[in-house]
């Protein structure tokens, strides 16, 4: 809305810790980043949107940990993660929302959705909450599922091959993130993501 929104692609960033300023709103995006990232919500009115895509293929093993620490009032954080594990890959996601005492009216959430595409792939997720303040709204959700057979069947009845139908569904699963980014930041933001193939 009227708040200025910054967009940052941190896929190849080397920093592990991000602190937001007072009333700042930043949309973060990362693809296939591993490691531990901490978002410090220690200035009142700060807003962080964190989007992450984890795609595992071959024998890759990826592990991402995203922590949001709210220590100031009226802070907001949203983490939206999509994981896709194919072949014999393994994806591990650890999330943590921590609300310190005094961070009143904090609003924090994490959402992780994962797809397992191959019988040899595995996904593990641990989205945790530690809430030490009463006056907050917090939630997290996690789903883990195969591709929807009914949806795939519907696409196939329109004359699309099984493999193409699968690719379409995977693309839709990821593109959801880009739609959200262009809504919150600006449609121009995703144009900067040249290295992301699924964005097109």
């Amino acid at each position: 809305m009227n708040k200025h929104t910054l967009f940052r692609d941190i896929s190849r960033d080397t920093k592990n810790s991000y602190a937001l300023k007072r009333n700042e709103r930043i949309v973060f995006f990362m693809q296939d980043r591993s490691g531990e990232l901490v978002f410090h919500m220690d200035a009142p009115g700060a807003e962080a949107y964190v989007f992450a895509i984890l795609s595992g293929s071959g024998t890759s093993v990826s592990s991402l940990r995203i922590t949001s620490i709210h220590s100031a009032p009226d802070t907001f954080s949203r983490a939206i993660i999509r994981g896709i594990a194919d072949d014999v890959s393994a994806i591990t996601y650890n999330g943590l929302i921590r609300i310190e005492p005094g961070a009143v009216r904090s609003d924090a959430s994490q959402e992780i959705r994962s797809l397992i595409l191959s019988p040899e792939a595995s996904v593990s997720s641990q989205p945790a909450l530690e809430i030490l303040e009463e006056d907050v709204h917090c939630n997290h959700s996690a789903t883990l599922s195969p591709l929807n057979d009914a949806e795939r069947f519907f696409i196939e009845t329109r004359g699309v091959s099984e493999n193409q139908a699968k690719q379409l569904l995977i693309k839709g699963f990821i593109n959801d993130i880009f739609f959200q980014i262009s809504d919150i930041a600006s449609p121009d933001a995703i144009k900067t993501l040249g290295h992301v193939t699924s964005a097109n």
């Binding site: 397992i116 019988p119 989205p127 907050v136 709204h137 939630n139 959700s141 789903t143 599922s145 195969p146």
Partner: peptide, 13 residues
Amino acid sequence: ASASIGHEATVEK
């Protein structure tokens, strides 16, 4: 790959 898990949690006053 054929299993599905759903988890949701909320915290409120």
